[in-house]
Structures are given as C-alpha cells and as structure tokens.
Design a protein around this nucleic acid. Structure first.
Lengths: 208, 208
DNA sequence: TTATTTACATACATTCATGAATGTTTATAA
DNA sequence: TTATAAACATTCATGAATGTATGTAAATAA
C-alpha cells in the first residue's frame, strides 16, 4: 500500500504537520530530527521529504495553520462597529486572543514553540520578522481605535492615544510571554481576564 | 607553550566565555558547536572541555556573569529609601534596567540569546525556571512598593496595589521582549524612557 | 633538582542527521 | 488497457559533532 489517493495524501500531510508540532514542542526545533517527526507521524522520512523541502518549510506550514486565523479572529473584534465604546473593542479583542490561547492546546503549543523552543538565527531570522510584523500591526490598529475613543470623549483625559496604545502593546506582549514561558505552577492563567479588565479600566473615564 | 600560569588559565576561561557569547548570539545555542567557540576564542576544543564539562555548563557560566549584577542594580533602586514617593523608586528601577540594556552590548547580547536564540528543552528547561524566578520575584517586590505608595496616599485612588503591580509586571516583560526580538529598524529604544514615564503616570495622583 | 600536575592540543571512535538516489506499488489519465 | 506519474519506503554516501583518550610542555610543589 504505497500509492495513496489525493485525499489520503493530504491526510498524511496534515499528520506530518501535527507530528511536527508535537516533536517541536517536546524537543525544540533544532533538536527535532525529521526521523523523529516521521516516526511520530507513522511514516518514514521519505514521506516528509515528499511533502516538504526541509525542516524550515515544515515549520512554516505548521505556523501558518495557526497564526493567520488567530489574527483574523482578534481583528474581527478590534475593527467591529458594534461597540459604542472603542475601548470595549480593544478589551474584547485582547480577551479573545487569550481565550483562544487558553482553550486551544494546538494554538498554545505553536505559540510556545515560537516563543521558547525555536532559535531565530539563519533561515529562521525571517520568522522573527513574521512575528514582529503582526505585533507592529497590532500597535497601529489599537492606536487608531484609541484615537476613536479619544474623539468620542471616552478616553480618560490627559492620556494620549498613542501613549495608551504603546502601553497596551507592551502589556499584551508581556502577558503572552509570562503566560507561556514562566509558568511555574502559578495560577496566572486564571488572572488573565481580570488583568486585562484592570489594564483597560485605567484608561476609561472614572465613573465617580 | 602549553602549560600556563593560573592567571593565564583564568584569562583563557574568560575568553572562552566571551567567545561563547558571540557564537551563541550569531548561531543560536544549539547550532553553536564547541569547535566554533574554541576557534573564536583562539583555542582548541581541548581547552573548552578542560574548563567546562559541556555546552550547557558553558552557557550557565556566560549567563551568570551578567544576570546576577543586573538584579542587584535594579533592586538597589527598587528597595532604596531615598525616594519619598515609592512610585519614583519603581520608575527609577525599571528605567535603570533598560538603561543598562541600552548601554551594555554584552548584557544585551546575553538577553537576546536567552530570549530568541535558545531552546528551552531538555537540560535547558531549568534555565527557563531560572529566568522565571526573577520575574516572579520582581512582581512580589513591586507589589510591596505599590502597597507602600498606597499607604502613603500616593497611588491614584481606585487602583489596587496588586493590580498595579501585575500590570507593571506585564508591561516590563513585554517591553523587554519587544525591544529585543521585534527590532525592525524601529526607533522603539528611543521611546523606552517615555513609555515608562507614561506607564507610571497613569497610576500617580492626577496633578489637577 | 626532580616528580607531579596543570593546561591545554591532537587524534580517534562513534553516533547522528541529512540529502540524494533508487525502488515499489498503485491511482489515474489517455 | 497501458503508460505515466504520484506517494511514498528503503538504502546509501557523506559530513558533522560529540566525548574520550592520549600526548606534551611548562609551572609548581617537594
């Protein structure tokens, strides 16, 4: 049983990607041999080389499966018009991001691989840029939304929209890193939602 | 000339550590062979194996040289009594951290290695914990200082000290990561100081 | 002065991972 | 129906990288 139908081939391709994720997560990218990945997927290296040129291409495929949908989901909240207060859009967007991260083990594994199980040198320097771009995009987007909030008079007076955006930007990045790389039996994940609320509350109009 | 005096031996030990830092930074930890490091240090692998058991031990030695002094310096500000406003101590401490990071190429290289050029698996999982511990220590420390500020009536009303501490914690972590792993010709490093001021200003008593 | 370490360099054996080449079966197109 | 090519498995050659073992000259202790 060698020659498979197209659907079967596509299936083994996906299984190779899933196996790669598991092995990357366990061994780190550079200590993950294609042999290990193949074995984990129940195939041989021949199959891996058939579907992917090398480890880097496999890595990108794994990443793409998860990254793009994530940006799309969070943008949906961020750019939605259904919030009368733009600050609610920002809060909902960030909350959604961490909710997906909490709920989906696959997403969490991929982010953990990218953050603490991959060395960004050589052919992987581009990956760092690909991670950096969405980060800067995020900054630009929330800055626009903060500006809308300011225009509507819903941003606490004395706070500049750009300043607020940069602060939220760093906060979000830090929360992500602390969550994925410094988890020592801490209950941080339970506090994420509250931390986001507190963060946003500091730039809302005081209720009293 | 083979047998060296003790001081000379100590010197080559240091040169090996410096070479390791350069090679780690350029190639990533797992793609750094002891051969490369030895050549960069102007010695052979024999010398490296004489001074260090393996690559991991060399990595730890490199890290220790930079990490401990850094914590000491920032703690000096954080725990100093010479600030009448505890919020100034926090701001000075964080500012000092990023100032050292900006000024010292060695420190920056080591942090860059730890953040984006090392895979935290296998024998390096412990490194992740060693990075996580100072992070949690920092959280505990600034929470205490925020509490002092609240007791002195210098924390903006409505803000809980623990909440403020966690927000600052995430902010600092995020700023560090953004600074070291997403630098694409951006002028972020110039804005660090201002970002810290803005961040702290949001929890100070409004002047008006 | 001599014996013994020290502080390395050199050489070697072994393991691993890669990439390419080749083999093999079967779906599919003509 | 047959030729072709897809979807792999198997084998092989090669090149690191590691750890260890051994060689060696000078510093140092006795």
């Amino acid at each position: 049983m060698v020659r498979k139908t197209k659907e079967e081939a596509e299936q083994t391709r996906k299984e190779i990607i899933h196996a790669a994720r598991r092995v990357f997560h366990e061994c780190g990218v550079s200590h993950s041999t294609l042999e290990k990945i193949a074995k984990a997927a129940g195939v041989t290296r021949g199959a891996v080389y058939w579907h992917f040129q090398d480890k880097a291409e496999l890595f990108f495929a794994m990443r793409e499966d998860v990254f793009a949908p994530m940006v799309e989901r969070t943008d949906a909240y961020l750019l939605s018009e259904r919030f009368e207060n733009p600050l609610d859009a920002i809060e909902a967007s960030i909350t959604e991001f961490f909710r997906v991260l909490e709920d989906s083990a696959v997403v969490r594994e991929v982010f953990e691989i990218m953050i603490s199980r991959c060395e960004y040198v050589g052919e992987f320097t581009s990956v760092e840029e690909e991670i950096g771009r969405p980060a800067y995009d995020f900054l630009a987007k929330i800055e626009r939304v903060y500006r809308q909030a300011a225009d509507k008079g819903m941003l606490r007076p004395g706070i500049d929209p750009m300043d607020a955006a940069r602060d939220t930007w760093a906060f979000t990045s830090g929360l992500l890193h602390l969550l994925l790389s410094c988890q020592r039996g801490s209950d941080l994940s339970q506090k994420v939602s509250a931390m986001i609320s507190v963060h946003m509350a500091m730039r809302r109009i005081p209720s009293v």
